[in-house]
Design a binder for these strands. Structure first.
Ligand SMILES: [Mn+2]
Ligand SMILES: [Mn+2]
Ligand SMILES: [Zn+2]
Ligand SMILES: [Zn+2]
Lengths: 141, 141
DNA sequence: ACTGTTATTGCAAAAAGTTGCAATAAGGAA
DNA sequence: TTCCTTATTGCAACTTTTTGCAATAACAGT
């Protein structure tokens, strides 16, 4: 059973359908292995599937997010980038050079528990972005 | 010396200028006291100042952010909202009802220090958003 | 394999956000 | 006050993202 079929049964179990568009976008994100913007995804996917349209890309990304197969992250500019869902993590992003490092979720686990206890909220999402200056960009001020 | 004049001297000290557009947008954010989207700000400001255009609103918000007078926050949808800069804080936002609570920055201070030590980054920004379910929305599932 | 239901897509149009550039005006200096 | 420099704005054009709706196609049931 291929990777795509696994995703397909997950979706069908919830009453949704697997389509070539969804398969393709999942494949692009899977093989990229990094964060991609909707525009980048659209450009790549369109080559493979010329009938594809932007609204489908945006709706597909929302759908896959909703179903836990991809995860959105925000960049400083207020736009989302997406990556295939994998282990829970967060990011530190440099305001100057854009450099980024991952932080395991377990580093934040205690904070999450504290916030939940103090507020009554249940925190469901990882993939938080913290902004700052990377070691290199601190030197030049 | 009025509130607007204070902002003005801050900007002039850095070689920038205070303009009616910047004054107005600062005033709107100041009197709103909450997060506003660029569209909301534009709509409000346009009534007071009909010659105002969208590019000016977006550029002004970037400029005021850059200069520490306003702070952007991101909502789940990947768009920014802005508020007048005040004490350092973060937010918990409910994925279901959109409800939101503030968290003092000092609750995260230790985590920030840990992240800085572990990564070498210097974290410069507060106003992080954590997503989850508010107490009310947890009951209905 | 065929059929029917309806989730999903493409299309068209709108809304939101961005960019380049010439015209304007803030504010320091005379 | 007037003049000059140049930061800032408005305009026009463009890109990105969203929305409504009719056409399509996934897939469960036969
Ligand atoms: Mn990531
Ligand atoms: Mn806030
Ligand atoms: Zn850097
Ligand atoms: Zn809620």
């Amino acid at each position: 059973m291929s990777c795509g079929s696994l995703y397909a049964s997950e979706l069908r179990a919830r009453g949704y359908r697997m389509t070539p568009q969804r398969m393709l976008i999942l494949h692009i994100l899977h093989s990229a292995g990094t964060h991609l913007s909707p525009t980048e995804i659209f450009a790549t996917a369109k080559k493979e599937f010329p009938r594809l349209t932007e609204p489908t890309v945006y709706r597909t990304l929302d759908f896959l997010t909703e179903n836990g197969l991809v995860r959105p992250a925000h960049r400083g500019n207020g736009h989302h980038v997406y990556e295939i869902a994998r282990h829970e993590h967060h990011h530190l992003v440099c305001r100057v050079c854009g450099g980024e490092v991952e932080v395991e979720h377990k580093v934040l686990a205690k904070l999450y528990r504290e916030l939940e206890t103090a507020s009554g909220y249940r925190l469901t999402d990882s993939h938080v972005t913290f902004f700052g200056l990377c070691p290199g960009c601190q030197k030049g001020d």
